[in-house]
Design a protein around this nucleic acid. Structure first.
Lengths: 339, 339
DNA sequence: TCAAAATGCGAAAACGATTAAGACTTTTCG
DNA sequence: CGAAAAGTCTTAATCGTTTTCGCATTTTGA
């Protein structure tokens, strides 16, 4: 900035104001300064700016830290990709948040403060952990994905409609004996889907035997195989199994085939997520395709709205929102039409 | 820091030195200062520190920007996960690099400077792009993954041995008519594998008809299906097809089954990568399991070494290294033993 | 015993930006 | 015409650290 100022014969303050489009600099000077800044390859020093303004143009991403599997989770990776693209186009970079910086432990909140993050998006994590709750309730702008907190804007996939669509589809295909392996019971996604499952079943007049509904952790392929095996060994076995995600569904398909039965000839299978994976396997999976890029994008938009309204400490902060993003049923070929 | 200084009855300078373990502060004072700092919940302000020291403890990750598919690429995501874990344990956070900050275009190098990144890891990108080359040759410490530049430390998967292992395995299983769909020709990974393929074939006395070897972009499942279909329609069709990765291999399996042939009964299939995917499908894929977490970890270690030696502007910067990480052949069940 | 060396700490200048307050010029308008 | 208003730019303080240099005080050793 000093060089630009000298080259233009103005003060450093003037350069700063010109770059930030303040109103007390003449249009002519602004143009002149900006052109020479451009020519001299000037880029602002974010650290200096951050020091003065407390804004880093950097957004934190918080996701499952312990298992180290978050990134390889196709659904989450895909949401993140959407989030990243939108944030970047608005001038924000994204940085991962964690708890072990340099072998020391700090809370997520402390990490955010330390790094000076402008806001955080929270996804794919145990939302009941005190540390996460503390972050969400802190002064740092936050958006959660697939979980709803009271005082925090959230973006969630429309799990209710998704599950309802599945059930109605299965019903229309003639299925009456439907099993449901659901994910971890303590997540909101699971709760929503379970509610939709039972309510829709009731409204269709479907009887669901209790032993048809079991917990099976998301993406836990071994557990999926075990549960599947239990289901198909039942004397009155289901004609169709709904899985918590595509991974487990595919694992289920493998297990069914291993036991000598065919998909969808003997047992129909439905997944959830609709990633690349689901189209790839043979037969292609019947599943709900979640609109991951839209979820990520919307989360970024809402978060940045909040950040920027905070920054101008305008009186009216944006309201806490609940965004619900619809998915789409992909028929695939793992559900058989019953006669 | 001011508060800590007051509370301890020392100057701010002393606090700073105590926290940074300078030698001219007595052990006793250090302990006292650190304890009260801890008690008062002090965390250094990274922006201020960055301003003074030009160190952000932040590492950039550069990967395919355009297609927006990098993160959902299981291999890369997994490498990144390893990189992230190691970096974080050493006190560095990671941030994504791109070219469109706030709708303006800046070069990767400019972005790094702007953000004050201490170093960059480059992966999963077109390494011949001038912008990437410029970054690698810049003053910013850089490590590349799966590509070797002259003046830059690199970590690559052992693609030569991987391909050699595949070919020898196939040979031992009795295969003599082996087709190879390889990835984009202009990548180093492909070149290495192709070299290994031809050299090993020669040393085994295998004849490879030119029409058995075709290009098929990595992860391009449609292309894989088309190429596969072409191969199996040949009058003298191969007994085995090697694919560039697991995704395409699975797509190939689907295509083969679609045409009424069986895997591995009629055609054997080999993938590459060995992610979760490969174990999941039915039959489980014969593939090379790349040691992704080790690749990521090693990249982080080497990069941080370079960063920290630069920081102490010690005379001897660490030498440019070529790290090669071995993979492992996973037999799976898609290769048939020929009589 | 006393100069020299070592030890422990503080004062103050940076780092590169932002911004309130003020200064000088020019315009406006009764 | 002249005072107030508007427009344009500068001065200087500030953000929270790090680091050089200097000043006491203590220790060392011949």
């Amino acid at each position: 900035m000093k060089d630009v100022a000298e080259s233009c014969g103005v003060s450093i303050a003037t350069v700063s104001k010109a770059m930030n489009d303040h109103s007390d600099i003449s249009e002519e000077t602004k143009q002149r300064i900006r052109r020479t800044a451009e020519k001299m390859g000037y880029f602002p020093n974010l650290a200096a700016r951050a020091l003065k303004t407390n804004r880093t143009y950097n957004i934190g991403v918080l996701y499952e830290d312990e298992a180290h599997s978050g990134l390889t989770h196709e659904y989450f990776a895909s949401v993140l990709e959407g989030f990243k693209a939108e944030s970047e186009s608005r001038g924000y970079d994204i940085t991962f948040i964690n708890r072990t910086v340099s072998n020391k432990t700090m809370s997520y909140y402390e990490h955010c403060k330390y790094r000076g993050l402008d806001g955080v998006v929270v996804a794919c994590i145990d939302f009941y952990e005190p540390d996460v709750v503390a972050l969400v309730n802190s002064s740092i702008p936050t958006v959660t994905i697939d979980h709803v907190f009271k005082n925090c804007t959230s973006v969630v996939s429309d799990n209710y409609t998704g599950m309802e669509d599945i059930l109605r589809y299965l019903y229309n295909m003639g299925h009456r004996k439907i099993a449901y392996l659901h994910g971890e019971s303590d997540t909101e996604v699971t709760k929503t889907r379970l509610t939709a499952f039972y309510e829709t079943a009731a409204s269709l007049g479907l009887e669901i035997p209790p032993e048809y509904v079991m917990e099976c952790d998301y993406c836990h392929v071994q557990m999926a195989a075990i549960r599947t095996s239990r289901l198909i060994k039942m004397t009155d076995r289901p004609s169709c199994i709904i899985y918590p995600d595509d991974m487990t569904a595919i694992s289920g398909v493998s297990e069914i085939k291993r036991s000598g039965l065919s998909v969808p000839g003997d047992i129909s299978v439905v997944g959830y997520d609709g990633g690349l994976l689901s189209e790839l396997v043979n037969p292609p999976l019947t599943t709900i395709k979640q609109n991951t890029s839209q979820i990520g994008k919307l989360a970024a938009i809402r978060l940045i709205e909040t950040i920027e309204s905070y920054a101008q400490n305008s009186q009216e902060t944006p309201p806490v929102r609940r965004e619900v993003v619809e998915g789409e049923l992909i028929p695939g070929k793992t559900v058989r039409k019953m006669n």
